[in-house]
């Protein structure tokens, strides 16, 4: 049964060249499997350029990227480790950041902190709406910010009842992690967006 489905996906991997059914099978097998990384099989290290490299058994990847599979729900679980080239193939998955040793944990966290940089709004100073834009002045954990949000679009994402993600017109992201923690008057300013 699987034989039928697999080639239909038409996603070849690896180098082009001659291939036979067996190699194809192998490639598709690989695609279907998830390879989990942990402190035993994976060895991460920092590169001079500020990235991570990965030694995985005999393979060495001079630069890898860390990507969250569930960026909102699971910040430190299900991290996909991918090659850094344009076609970005998955090398393996760190299922839980606690599966790796503490030094690696720090490295991964550094990478995630930069890649998923999202200021968290702690205080709403003012929100003014006119002519299809709303102008926000807020204080975040990264300092005060002023940005502009397009109205009527999908710029405000409700991640849960109380958690919202705001995208400004350049698609810079800001987050309110818990609306209920804001004061009543801040919530009133936000009311239009809730």
């Amino acid at each position: 049964m699987r034989r039928r489905e697999v080639p239909g996906k038409g996603k070849p991997i690896g180098e082009p060249g001659e291939f036979d059914l067996e190699q194809m099978e192998k490639e598709t097998e690989e695609m279907l499997k998830t390879f989990y990384l942990n402190k035993k099989n994976a060895e991460f290290s920092r590169t001079k350029g500020g990235f991570l490299s990965l030694k995985l058994e005999e393979q060495f990847y001079p630069r890898v990227n860390v990507v969250r599979m569930f960026p909102f729900r699971e910040m430190e679980r299900y991290l996909s480790i991918r090659t850094a080239d344009e076609r970005s193939k998955e090398i393996g998955v760190v299922k839980d950041i606690w599966d790796v040793d503490s030094e690696t944990r720090n490295m991964l966290r550094e990478q995630l902190k930069l890649r998923y940089f999202t200021p968290v709004i702690t205080k709403v100073i003012s929100i003014k709406s006119e002519f299809g834009y709303s102008y926000w002045e807020v204080v975040t954990n990264q300092g005060a910010c002023r940005f502009t949000v397009r109205m009527g679009g999908n710029a405000i994402l409700h991640l849960s009842e109380t958690r919202i993600l705001i995208m400004d017109i350049d698609e810079n992201r800001f987050e309110i992690s818990d609306v209920e923690k804001l004061t009543a008057s801040e919530r009133r300013k936000l009311d239009l967006f809730l």
Partner: peptide
């Protein structure tokens, strides 16, 4: 980094 500075984005 200086957290006392106001970060300005497009629109302002």
């Amino acid at each position: 980094p200086d957290k006392t500075k106001v970060q300005i984005f497009k629109g302002y």
